[in-house]
Write a protein that binds this DNA or RNA. Structure first.
Length: 190
DNA sequence: CGCCAGATTGACT
DNA sequence: GTCAATCTGGCGG
């Protein structure tokens, strides 16, 4: 996807990312999957955002260059986001779940399970399956030579939206987007 | 500089 | 249902 794909409101980009392919080149393997679940985050106006208060690296990254990966750790896991916002704004998309396409055997090894459904059905899980960690922080996902990229995928039809997962203080607009029929969406409470 | 909470997961009672 | 692992940054002393 071209860089300008990310120059829009985060919610719009979150919706647009469903059905796209997240592609991770790791050593000899290509680990890829369809994006089936996303969440949009904003800046100062969003209590759940890392840019809500603070001016650290995460906040400035969220308000900086669009189309770059934002990787950050919580609860001992890595969460993979893509920076997206209109000019002068702040925002990003959290990738919450994938439907594996290629590199499944490698993903199984990284995740320590043979259950395909358990490989990438959660933000921490997909990071582990695709060997995503802090090294990919700020890598541009629109550049074909990057180790992580977002590519054109398929059209998704039955898309649903709901409130964000795990957020203590959510906005009053549903910002979670997912493919309703997918068996790979995260199975925690909605 | 130490303490704490957080966009999670999975193991255990 | 409860709990800890593990990393980053804000905030208090």
């Amino acid at each position: 996807m071209p860089k300008k794909f990310y120059a829009r409101d985060p919610a719009y980009v979150a919706r647009g990312l469903l059905g796209k392919v997240l592609c991770r080149v790791f050593e000899e393997s290509v680990l890829a999957g369809f994006i089936v679940e996303t969440e949009a985050y904003y800046g100062r106006s969003d209590p759940a955002s890392r840019a809500y208060r603070g001016s650290g690296d995460l906040a400035s990254t969220l308000c900086g260059d669009i189309g770059v990966a934002l990787v950050y750790g919580v609860h001992g896991r890595w969460l993979f986001n893509i920076v997206a916002h209109t000019p002068g704004g702040c925002g990003g998309i959290l990738i919450r779940a994938l439907e594996p396409i290629s590199g499944v055997e490698v993903m199984k090894r990284f995740r320590g399970t043979d259950d395909v459904l358990q490989l990438t059905n959660g933000p921490g899980k997909l990071s582990e399956a695709l060997a995503i960690d802090k090294r990919l922080h700020k890598v541009p996902v629109y550049s074909a030579s990057s180790e992580v990229t977002v590519r054109r995928g398929r059209e998704e039809r039955d898309i649903a939206r709901g409130f964000r997962v795990g957020v203590t203080e959510d906005l009053d607009v549903p910002l979670r987007f997912y493919v309703k029929s997918s068996k790979f969406i995260s199975t925690r409470r909605y």
